[in-house]
Simulated assay, not measured.
Amino acid sequence: MKIVLIIDKKDTLYLDNIKKRLDFYISSYELELIYSENYRNSEDLSIPYLFFGYKSIQILKSRDNKKNLFNIDFRTNHMDGWELTRLAGFTGKNNVNEEEMIKKFNLAIEKIKGEKLNRSYLFGTGPSLEKAEKIDWSDGYRVVCNTIVRDAKLWKHLNPHFIIAGDAIYHFGFSELPKIFRRDLKDRLKETQTYLVYPDYPGFHEIFIREFKEFKDRMIAIKLGKHKNVENNLFENFSLPALGNALQLSMLPLGCNLSKNVYLWGFDGRAPKDDLPFWNYSNKHAYPELIPQLMKDHPMFFEKNAPKSDTKKYTRETLGDTLENALSNAEAKAWKFEMMHKSWTPALQKRCRKNI
């Protein structure tokens, strides 16, 4: 496939870096290079046009139709990872069949609910997750969060019903961290009958189906909705809420669809003294040693979401009033939520079990 890269002359030193990214997202391509200074408006809607550099981005901003236009300048675009997955979707052949996904989801829920359990357990990847191995969770449905796959022993102990993934750079990206994550995820999926759920963001399915084709029957992509209801009935409205964090986007909706009694473990939150970009993780269930490289690969993502001048920005915006409102709205409809240990996230600590 032909791809056109419109780049400022002074930025050609980034070409090798750009090609490294493209090599992951696109299986085969022919790259045509055009300098921004020489570019004339002649876009073919069937060809992807990539923009990199200040002058190049100004050209992009002047365009109305952007379906085949991609801002891949990781220095200035905090969504560059999502643009690249969108590029994978645009150039790929594995589109999501929503009817097929609905059928798979309905069959999965029917099978899982056959266990007739009365609660859901959601597992984050905070430091407290290390204690989960000492507890029997077999009395509830289990929904786990992405990088827990690093710990094969805990995975076997939990035997999850669902695992969720949903971040373009942490899970679907080209960097070492998402590559290792996908390697471990593949190993874990071989060990259990866990279903893999992810949002139907452009390109996500294209990337996952390449690496997890053998698990196709257990892969469920759910479209992004416009509502903000974590308790949304997925049988009636097959869409995820328009909420940015994995807990609210995927985990709570799955937990709420399995039971009206939802318990949370491993969501420790961000302690006041934490200097991490977002929140504290369990080293056994994340890849902290690979974060520095991820930050180099997507610098603006981290600068935008966790700037040095306000490192609590992301947690405040996604786990503050937004989470409280989502939980309160569901509670008004008879759902119950319980945080099973101390959490630095106010909305969860408010619902913490008193004797722990």
Results as ranks from 00 to 15, higher is better:
V4K: 01
T12P: 00
L13D: 10
D16F: 08
N17L: 14
K20N: 15
K20Q: 09
R21D: 06
S28Q: 15
E30V: 12
L31C: 02
I34R: 13
Y35N: 13
S36I: 04
L45G: 02
S46E: 08
F52H: 10
K61D: 14
N65M: 10
N65V: 09
K66Y: 02
K67S: 14
L69K: 14
N71R: 06
F74D: 02
R75N: 10
W82E: 12
E83Y: 03
L84W: 04
T85L: 08
E98P: 00
E99M: 10
K104W: 04
N106Q: 11
E110N: 14
K111P: 00
I112S: 10
K113F: 07
N118Y: 10
R119F: 02
L122M: 07
T125S: 15
S128Y: 03
S128R: 12
E133F: 09
D136V: 10
Y141A: 10
N146I: 00
I148V: 15
V149E: 01
L154C: 05
N159R: 09
D167A: 11
A168D: 09
Y170F: 15
S175D: 08
I180W: 02
I180Y: 05
R182G: 05
R182D: 03
R183A: 04
T194W: 00
Y195D: 00
L196H: 10
V197D: 02
Y201R: 13
H205V: 06
H205N: 15
F208G: 00
I209M: 08
F215A: 03
M219L: 10
I220G: 03
A221I: 07
I222N: 02
L224W: 03
K226M: 08
K228D: 06
N232D: 07
S239R: 03
L240A: 07
L243C: 05
N245H: 11
L249E: 06
M251I: 12
L252V: 06
G255E: 06
L258N: 02
L258M: 14
K260L: 05
N261C: 03
F267Q: 00
D268R: 02
D274I: 04
N280F: 00
Y281S: 11
P288D: 10
I291R: 15
L294E: 11
K304Q: 05
A306T: 09
K312C: 04
T318K: 11
E324I: 02
A330E: 01
A332S: 13
K333I: 04
W335Q: 06
F337Q: 06
M339I: 09
M339P: 01
W344E: 11
T345I: 15
R351C: 04
K354Q: 11
I356F: 11
